[in-house]
Nucleic acid binder design. Structure first.
Lengths: 203, 203
DNA sequence: TTTTATTTATAAACACTGTTCAGTAATTTT
DNA sequence: AAAATTACTGAACAGTGTTTATAAATAAAA
């Protein structure tokens, strides 16, 4: 019975069309301006049709959110080329900040916006995609400490500290809280701060 | 002509009523659920009346935002009791995180939400209230370095680093991105990370 | 004091939003 | 070909921020 499979495939294609259009609109105009009606118009379906493929607006953004985490992880994985754990850590920091500043809307969705995380909680889903990248950081830090390349400290405290720091800088920039300094200086300040922070942790 | 003054006073009183109600609703239900219609109902005026006292919804939140910064600054000022600059710095860190976790909605408005900052930019207003607290941090860091209590580093890099770090931890918690650890552990992790970070900066 | 002018408040509407549901059109199964 | 299932839509519901013409209240001028 290939007919059920075709139906399933068509359903997936429709989901894909919705997701693609939503992503595009989201990256162009942001969450609020990405309306169900707007998506429907672009794919030439009625607004109600979208609800046959997604439970609600947030479910669409949970899917985009999910893919963004895959993208981040694959980017961070580039740091694996670095054999030295501390060099890898530094590389990861740069890659993370790079990802954030190159994809501010995605970063926003992943680490700042309420909606996707609220939806995940309501559906009692776990955050495995997020975990994966965090654990990568954590394991790198473990290697650093085991190799004596980093000052010894509690592993979780270290992981939280590094994550908090990079998120702090990037989210302040993305949400426009860096007005103390002119925009031209931002990138330099971010890079220097990150470098300074990592240098403080080095053994 | 005391009549103009009375009118002005009445206008201010009305502004105050709107602001008070909006604050209350915002702290109870959040930004989205604080509607113009809702505020109007509580103060028993028509929705349109509010527009005679505030240009739009965001202007109300800019006012709340402004007062929140006064609150933060007066809280941070408690650290002035500490004569030793490094002890003052540590104290400030604790006070900042304390403020954030005790007033998550206000913190959100001040450092995370898009709306108030967008409104400030559109109106070409500057962020002096925010500056004030940041400069307090910056000057404390200068004192620390001048007194040789802190590792020498660029002053702005240090200020950005500390601010980014504390904002990072608090905003991750407020926006629910700390799911890697159970909620009971959060406070301890935040405090330990902050302490650890400051210890790394100590000379 | 009466008339004019000004300020203050409102009802109604505009253009949106996410979402639901009854009913229709298309497709598959019997 | 008829019945049953699936896919889809138009219209409506209950909201949102905001604008505007209109009415009411107040102040100033005659």
């Amino acid at each position: 019975m290939g007919i059920l499979e075709r139906k399933e495939r068509e359903k997936q294609e429709m989901r894909e069309r919705i997701l693609h259009t939503a992503s595009q609109m989201f990256l162009e105009e942001g969450y609020d301006k990405t309306s169900i009606r707007g998506i429907a118009e672009r794919i030439e379906y009625s607004p109600a049709a979208i609800y046959l493929y997604f439970k609600d607006k947030n479910e669409i953004f949970v899917a985009i959110h999910d893919r963004a985490f895959d993208l981040l992880f694959s980017k961070l994985a580039q740091a694996n080329l670095e054999a030295n754990p501390f060099a890898r850590l530094c590389h990861m920091g740069g890659l993370f900040v790079g990802f954030a500043l190159e994809n501010p809307e995605l970063y926003d969705l992943m680490f700042i916006m309420r909606e996707p995380m609220d939806a995940l909680c309501q559906r009692e889903m776990d955050w495995d995609k997020g975990f994966r990248s965090f654990n990568f950081l954590r394991e790198t830090l473990r290697e650093c400490m085991e190799a004596g390349l980093m000052k010894p400290m509690d592993l979780d405290v270290a992981a939280v500290s590094v994550f908090s720091f990079v998120h702090g800088v990037t989210s302040l920039i993305i949400r426009g809280r860096f007005k103390m300094y002119p925009a031209e200086q931002h990138q330099a300040l971010v890079e220097q701060s990150l470098q300074n922070m990592l240098e403080l942790m080095r053994a």
